[in-house]
Amino acid sequence: MADTLKNIRSKFVSSVSKTVIHQLLDDLLDDKILNDGEVEHIKDGTSMRAEKARSLIDMVRNKGDTASHILIKRLKEQDPMLSKNLGLDS
């Protein structure tokens, strides 16, 4: 699953909205994939949407396959159209 995130990284970064990023951060905090400090780092680290997206996908990808699987699952829930465009619907 971490490889899947690596393969979709650039398209995710260019396509995901700031709203979806924040929803994913909340979801991943609830799922205990990210901690408060990591969420705040992404939210407050930069105002640029693309940088937030890069930080999010890289942080989760580095946590391994289980974390990556949960991010993909949450992305499918939050933005089904983006998930489909990224090829994650299968």
Rank of each mutant, 00 (worst) to 15 (best):
63 K>F: 02
83 S>I: 07
75 L>I: 08
66 T>D: 13
89 D>H: 14
26 D>N: 10
25 L>E: 10
41 H>D: 13
35 N>S: 07
7 N>Q: 15
2 A>Q: 14
56 L>Q: 01
40 E>H: 09
18 K>W: 12
5 L>C: 04
26 D>S: 06
45 G>I: 08
30 D>Q: 15
70 I>P: 01
14 S>Y: 05
41 H>M: 13
1 M>H: 13
23 Q>E: 14
67 A>D: 00
64 G>C: 03
16 V>R: 01
29 L>D: 07
31 D>M: 02
37 G>W: 02
19 T>M: 05
27 D>V: 11
63 K>R: 13
68 S>G: 02
77 E>Y: 03
54 R>F: 03
79 D>V: 06
43 K>D: 07
19 T>D: 06
28 L>I: 10
9 R>F: 03
52 K>G: 02
17 S>M: 04
44 D>T: 13
65 D>F: 07
77 E>S: 15
2 A>P: 10
46 T>W: 07
79 D>S: 09
90 S>E: 11
78 Q>P: 07
42 I>F: 01
68 S>A: 15
74 R>D: 02
57 I>P: 03
72 I>D: 04
59 M>G: 00
88 L>A: 03
71 L>S: 05
1 M>G: 13
25 L>H: 09
49 R>V: 08
33 I>T: 05
30 D>H: 11
37 G>Q: 10
9 R>D: 00
7 N>P: 11
34 L>N: 00
31 D>N: 04
37 G>C: 10
61 R>Y: 05
